[in-house]
Nucleic acid binder design. Structure first.
Length: 503
RNA sequence: GGGUCGCUAGCUCAACUGGCAGAGCAACGGACUCUUAAUCCGUGGGUUCGGGGUUCGAGUCCCCGGCGGCCUACCA
């Protein structure tokens, strides 16, 4: 049934193809009917376009080298005149080279075929002598050419911006048309490679933990659910790898990290994607302040790798300084300063509600006291941050997996790192006392009826902790957000194929 | 979720208070042996997001639906 309707759709699409698509299909038919290849299995190239460019940096205008090469690439520009045709071929790296086809060199038939069958967007190969045009542009003077792959659809206009939706829905076109799109794709890999090598330099071991999980845990978030037929059980897509990475630390992998994809069944906007990349790392015998230091170093090293500098330039031209030590504030102290009176974990509920109200902050009666303080932070403190800023020491009631502060009652050893107004990373001194941990998780489970993000009890995780986990720092860092901080782009730009609603 | 604006040729956009649906680039035919957003002559191309309604007549007005942008809310 599905297959049938799908076939119907395909053939209907073919019938309805636009005039330009029809013409390209006809060209393909003609090429094949002539016994030429439109989609050869291999192509007789001798050089990459990059190699030709680097090998012949300076060819004087109007001269040829006597050297013959054969290259392949996608046609981005075509200019056909009577007996001399120009085209610009680009390789996957973005390097382009000009091809010139003259009647003298390729002959009448090959030139006519070129003018008849070649379109913008086709992949072709060309064999010929390296030289420079009269204008001095490095060119290949074709002796022979052929298709590498005929394109059946027209590309968008090169000189107008594609709409953001078109760019996201057809990223392959975005990658063809926009150098920045290609750069962003590479920047992401550069950042990931930098994180991996920075962590390897510090003796961290990369592991992979389950994406399909039988219990949700490790964060407060709404999970996606799915069903496993073989065991007839419901499964969750992970919202965080935390509980498995801690099992690793229990097992003796004392410096461990995972670069993972998390899935959260929540809103999607310019800073939230339903699936998002994350780095989580844990270091035994370290505390949250050491975690903050490593986090800063990881980000600074990634900035250097991606941007070549700690002065990071965003897409809008603004420059953001990520160098040196970063600002750090205490949550309760900074909120107290902002509201003009002393706020502490012991501040009463009515007092907190009154302060929120006086600052026009809407509150939900189900929220815990700590949540109210965090609301005050988000509304009154973080908007004023000017550079990367760590906020230290959060309320205990909203962070069940974090250990109590060693000195201050009612707060936990947790920090959030704010960059450009959003949370880029968070770190803890991990709670490793299994009895306290169980108690916190039981309290969370009890809230499950009013709060669908609360975590159920993970007995296996608690059993692991009961075997003894060394004191540890834990950090989570958003990969997409790291790219946003380094480039100034929206989250959908930093992800190659973000989820979009089907049309 | 709420508000708001938008969806027109392959792409980017235009079309007054309802009155023959257009341009640039792209495409097609022709000229041109140094073009690079070439130039010149000629031509074709539309389910105006989908469905319904009002009207002599709807891209335009009304209703329902889809997708998207922005604002707002929610969100470790």
């Amino acid at each position: 049934m599905r297959g049938t309707s799908n076939l119907y759709w395909v053939s209907k699409e073919h019938e309805d193809a636009s005039e330009q698509q029809q013409i390209r299909r006809e060209k393909r038919e003609r090429i094949l009917a002539d016994g030429r290849e439109a989609y050869p299995v291999t192509v007789p190239i001798t050089h990459s376009i990059d190699k030709v460019r680097s090998q012949y940096p300076e060819v004087p205008a109007g001269e040829t080298t006597g050297d013959e090469v054969a290259v392949a690439g996608r046609i981005l520009f075509v200019r056909n005149t009577g007996k001399l045709c120009f085209a610009s071929l680009r390789s996957g790296t973005g390097t382009a080279i000009q091809v010139m086809l003259s009647l003298d060199r390729v002959g009448e038939a090959a030139l006519a075929a070129w003018k008849q069958d070649v379109d913008l967007g086709d992949h072709i190969w060309v064999r010929g002598e390296v030289g420079a045009s009269r204008r001095g542009e490095l060119s290949i003077f074709a002796e022979e050419w052929g298709f590498a792959a005929k394109s059946l659809r027209p590309l968008p206009v090169a000189h107008k911006e594609m709409s953001e939706e078109a760019r996201v829905r057809q990223r392959y076109i975005d990658l063809i048309m926009r150098p920045e799109a290609r750069k962003t794709a590479r920047d992401r890999i550069t950042a990931l490679a930098s994180l991996r090598s920075s962590l390897a330099d510090r003796d961290f071991l990369e592991v992979e933990t389950p994406i399909l999980q039988t219990l949700q845990g490790g964060a407060s978030a709404k999970p996606f659910t799915t069903h496993m037929n073989a065991y007839d059980i419901d499964l969750f897509l992970r919202i965080a790898p935390e509980l498995f990475l801690k099992r690793c630390v229990v097992g003796g992998i004392e410096r461990v990290f995972e670069i993972n994809r998390n899935f959260r069944n929540e809103g999607a906007d310019s800073t939230h994607s339903p699936e998002f990349g994350m780095l989580e790392f844990y270091q035994a015998y370290a505390d949250y302040r050491e975690g903050a230091t490593i986090t800063r170093e990881l980000i600074q090293e990634a900035a250097t790798a991606v941007c070549g500098s700690l002065e990071v330039e965003h897409a809008d031209g603004s420059v953001h300084d990520l160098s040196g030590e970063w600002d750090s504030v205490s949550l309760y102290e900074s909120v107290s300063r902002a509201v003009g009176s002393q706020i502490s974990p012991q501040t009463s509920r009515p007092e907190l509600e009154r302060i929120c109200e006086s600052h026009d902050i809407d509150i939900n009666p189900d929220w815990l006291n700590g949540r109210l303080v965090e609301e005050l932070l988000e509304h009154l403190v973080t908007p004023d941050f000017t550079g990367p800023t760590f906020v230290f020491d959060y309320p205990v009631d909203t962070s069940p997996l974090v250990r109590d502060h060693r000195h201050v009652e009612g707060v936990v050893e947790k920090w959030d790192l704010y960059v450009d107004g959003f949370e880029l990373a968070t770190g803890y001194s991990e709670l490793v006392d299994p009895v306290v941990q169980r108690q916190r998780l039981v309290e969370q489970a009890a809230r499950a009826s009013v709060d669908d993000e609360a975590m159920p009890l993970d007995e296996d995780f608690l059993a692991a902790l009961e075997h003894g986990m060394p004191p540890s720092a834990g950090v989570g860092l958003g990969i997409d957000r790291l790219l946003m901080a380094l480039t100034g782009l929206g989250i959908r730009e930093t992800i190659l194929f973000p989820l979009v609603k089907p049309l």
